[in-house]
Design a protein around this nucleic acid. Structure first.
Lengths: 242, 242
DNA sequence: CGCACAGTTGATATTTCTCAATAAGGGTGG
DNA sequence: CCACCCTTATTGAGAAATATCAACTGTGCG
């Protein structure tokens, strides 16, 4: 028996908007189970028409897509609370793949009930659209990063964003947070070569702004790093949780 | 008195899913008017909390955002049928600006009724989410382009996408379609410098694949151009129209 | 006429990529 | 337990792609 939504640990994180009792019990009906996967497990495949949607409950993953020439683009990193599979749910086909990078626990929803969802709970339907808009907003920022920032600025920007995200989820302790990705993942996310990403990271480390090894990211001067990344530290606003 | 939705010329384009009579009359209530703007007019501003949402009825525009260092990223190009202002509608703040590039006619919706929308017409709410998912899907492709394709591949890819989009809207006659953007727009969309974009276009023209001058894009060999852009010509599927 | 903007072109500078080699760690089979 | 292999990270050197700078053209417009 999966944990009931009212006991969902994400509920209590202040990164998320709280759900009403009514909404919670509705989500419990919508929830069809839980899925636990190990690192490296594919969760959704690009081009697939998946019958299930997920919310990441714990652990981290990655979204990516592959070009005809074999090159890979990382779309973004999956954190707890992320909704996975919207594209399949509404368009019938994923534009990217999702893969676990750590042990992950996922809340599973049945796609066949997705449309019902809109019918019976407009507030929740609105929240899904909200999530989609947040995603679109963020992807605009990523576009601007890959398109307009230099390698150093890009890396700084990305790590600031990741760190802020981690902080809002309570993953940061003493300026450190777990970051279970490889330099290749970051390189593919930023449209940079692995080698150049490595050298860029080394330079930032040299400047004492951060260190990232053994899957631990430590940021020593977030302000300075944000400045380097041509961004500022806005307080992250709460988002809906599915 | 604005044109009633049932007479909307976009309705009849086969790029869009048809609306039921019921939906049409509902949209007429939701519609608060029409807006006509001239080239260069800003429609929505990055960071603004706009009270209105739009659907482009005719004409073309551009979405862009500006970095702290003044660099500009074009997010995408606005075509007839595009829904504008979702981010403001649901998050309360636009992540990019929208500006007219030709004379444009816009269908105006009142944001204050946006939430109602979800309550009273779940099918239409679903369609909004669908549009958001399409946008997200496309932006993933753009990310992969800027991040992984070479300049030549990027330009070829972009023009193929634009041409396909134009074709689905009936804007193509004899391999030609209007393209009221500048080379700078395209450069800023692809994260390339203006000069390099110009030379890349010249090379593609030299190869007789296309020509683009006087705001007219002509593609001579779409197949070959698609191949150059590492993409294929999938039949574009119908999308919802707001 | 003169100015602003879009496009074009050549020369040069810089960033970033590719190639190649090395090192460290984890896992596995013998 | 050791030898081997695979992945990840690291570093140096040279190559390629792309950016920057600068000059020039044509066009539309007040």
């Amino acid at each position: 028996m999966p944990t009931q939504c009212r006991y969902c640990p994400l509920q209590r994180k202040d990164a998320f908007l709280p759900l009403s009792k009514d909404e919670l019990s509705f989500m419990e009906k919508f929830k069809s189970g839980e899925l636990t996967v190990e690192p490296g497990t594919p969760i959704l495949l690009e081009g697939s028409n998946a019958p299930q949607l997920f919310t990441a409950l714990s652990g981290m993953g990655i979204r990516d897509k592959t070009l005809e020439n074999g090159k890979r683009q990382v779309i973004n990193f999956v954190f707890p609370g992320d909704f996975i599979g919207l594209q399949a749910g509404v368009m019938g086909e994923m534009g990217h793949s999702v893969e676990a990078r750590t042990h992950m626990r996922l809340c599973v929803f049945n796609r066949s009930e997705f449309y019902n969802f809109f019918k019976s709970h407009p507030e929740r339907a609105f929240d899904i659209t909200w999530l989609a808009a947040i995603e679109e907003h963020f992807m605009g920022e990523v576009l601007a990063t890959i398109g307009q920032r230099t390698a150093t600025q890009s890396v700084a920007w990305a790590l600031v964003k990741i760190f802020e995200r981690g902080r809002s989820l309570g993953m940061v302790t003493q300026n450190q947070m777990p970051l279970p990705y490889t330099q290749r993942d970051l390189a593919d996310a930023l449209g940079l070569s692995l080698v150049h990403t490595n050298k860029t990271l080394a330079a930032l480390k040299e400047r004492q702004l951060l260190s990232w090894s053994d899957r631990i990211l430590q940021i020593n001067d977030l302000e300075a790093l944000a400045k380097e990344g041509l961004t500022s530290l806005e307080g992250r606003q709460k988002r809906p949780l599915m």
